[in-house]
């Protein structure tokens, strides 16, 4: 690759010439640099593989018995209604047309002080415990393997009896990103139990009458 720079010697007898500088540029450093860059890019592209978010849905049982449906306490239930356009409605408890008054919808959004704040307040206990556990690992007070830590966090989530049970419901105007965003919030706020369920007719009515 490197090139020999041959100094030209005067051919015509006797005539003296000024010393000439070769106009050739040695490209070797550039090639070296490019090799480094290529190696760098090859390594980084291998890391930027698509990421996935895993969700597991409950099995759909055809012969579903309403008596066997999991019972969830009303005071722990947080309903999140998505209707697109970065609007999130939520209410606590259960909307039952037989038991008026219906709960009122509160309007919020996907920002930091929006739904996340609500989720953090409701999930304070579990969130604090998990965050403290993680902090201990980061500061080096606790040395455990990643899998052990994951299992420990899973156990904490499973044993949690105070945190909200979030029911995510989306109407026909909702976009796919709304669902992904809200599931993401669940992961950020360490919500132990959440499910994606269908809207009931009452809730559709509630969205219609909701504060704009």
């Amino acid at each position: 690759m490197a090139e020999l720079i041959v100094e030209e010697k005067g051919k015509k007898g006797g005539k003296r010439r000024p010393k000439k500088h070769s106009t050739r540029i040695d490209m070797t450093p550039m090639v070296d640099l490019m090799c480094l860059l290529i190696t760098f890019f090859m390594l980084t592209t291998a890391f930027s593989k698509p990421k996935v978010m895993v969700i597991t849905m409950p099995e759909k049982d055809k012969k579903e018995d309403p008596k066997n449906a999991p019972k969830i306490s009303a005071e722990r239930t947080l309903n999140i209604l998505l209707t697109g356009e970065d609007v999130v409605y939520y209410y606590m408890g259960i909307a039952d047309p037989k038991k008026p008054p219906l709960p009122t919808l509160v309007k919020t959004d996907f920002s930091k002080d929006g739904i996340r704040k609500i989720l953090l307040i409701k999930n304070r206990d579990l969130f604090t415990r998990i965050a403290e556990y993680r902090d201990q690992r980061i500061t080096g007070k606790l040395v455990v393997a990643d899998t052990t830590a994951d299992n420990e966090i899973k156990k904490m989530k499973k044993e949690d009896k105070k945190g909200p049970i979030v029911l995510i419901k989306a109407d026909s105007k909702a976009k796919y990103k709304d669902i992904v965003n809200i599931i993401d919030e669940m992961a950020i706020c360490n919500i132990a139990s959440y499910a994606i369920v269908d809207l009931s007719p009452v809730e559709l009515e509630m969205i219609k009458n909701a504060p704009k």
Binding site: P50, M53, I55, T56
Partner: peptide, 19 residues
Amino acid sequence: NKFNLVTNLMKEEVTLKDL
């Protein structure tokens, strides 16, 4: 019953201070 939703990574962290 298990789906892998393909997403792009965008880091966001909430610590105890944000509570």
